[in-house]
């Protein structure tokens, strides 16, 4: 491991300790929410943000694969989709915990809950497709085509469904009015957490792609 990487990991650890401390002790209690339940926003929103970033990386890598036919792009697309799926599950679980405290039930079929459930299904189907194709090049092409087709439905899930149906979900940070409705210390912690989670995603993503590259190298040498 290079010195720069070691420094990055140590900095990421310290940063997360600061974010956790800030989420519980620095940020004030939010008005209008039951007990301390609103503090979950410092973990829930960054998880959802990282899931969106991962799916965007998946889209870019899929387009690159179709342009260059380089198996490394397919590896990047699969790694980011896997992490996107993981962070979507984490965002769903943290959102469900909040829903249980606020509204008394883990799942309320709120439009945003439906949207994330469909998103989970889409990317689970992406991996079902990958498993069904043994040839790596054909797998890359078909998975990239499906990923691009799936990505275009995302704006409808994220922006259109919650606007057509009435939602229990608190107003999002980037809302219709385009105003940030959050106390400044809470906003600082939230942005710190978003940065920390993005760093965590980047570290996991580089681990995944390195591992897959080594596997590819081993398979090619084996042939």
């Amino acid at each position: 491991m290079t010195r720069l990487k070691k420094f990055f990991l140590a900095a990421l650890f310290v940063w997360f300790c600061l974010v956790i401390w800030g989420a519980f002790f620095y940020a004030p209690r939010a008005a209008g929410f039951k007990g301390e339940s609103a503090r979950i926003v410092f973990f829930h929103v960054p998880q959802a943000w990282v899931a969106v970033v991962a799916f965007c990386v998946n889209l870019v890598a899929s387009i690159q694969y179709l342009r260059r036919r380089d198996l490394m792009d397919d590896i990047r697309a699969a790694a980011s989709a896997r992490l996107g799926l993981l962070f979507s599950v984490l965002a769903t679980v943290s959102g469900s915990l909040f829903a249980k405290v606020m509204w008394g039930s883990f799942w309320n079929w709120d439009p945003r809950e439906v949207s994330i459930a469909i998103l989970l299904l889409i990317y689970a189907a992406y991996f079902a497709l990958r498993q069904a194709v043994p040839d790596p090049e054909r797998r890359g092409t078909l998975a990239a085509a499906y990923a691009i087709l799936a990505f275009v439905t995302m704006p409808f899930l994220v922006f259109v469904v919650p606007r057509i149906y009435w939602s229990l979900h608190p107003d999002t940070i980037i809302n219709v009015q385009g105003k940030i409705q959050m106390e400044s210390r809470m906003f600082q912690v939230l942005m710190g957490s978003v940065l920390g989670f993005t760093g965590l995603f980047w570290w996991l993503y580089s681990l995944e792609t390195r591992l897959a590259r080594l596997r590819l190298f081993r398979d090619q040498r084996g042939e």
């Binding site: 439906v114 469909i118 299904l121 889409i122 689970a124 189907a125 079902a128 497709l129 069904a132 499906y146 087709l149 799936a150 439905t153 409808f156 899930l157 259109v160 469904v161």
Partner: peptide, 15 residues
């Protein structure tokens, strides 16, 4: 596989 791949894609439209 068709149902597995198509259902999540058409779900928003079905909604």
């Amino acid at each position: 596989l068709f149902v597995v791949l198509a259902v999540p894609l058409v779900l928003p439209m079905l909604v």
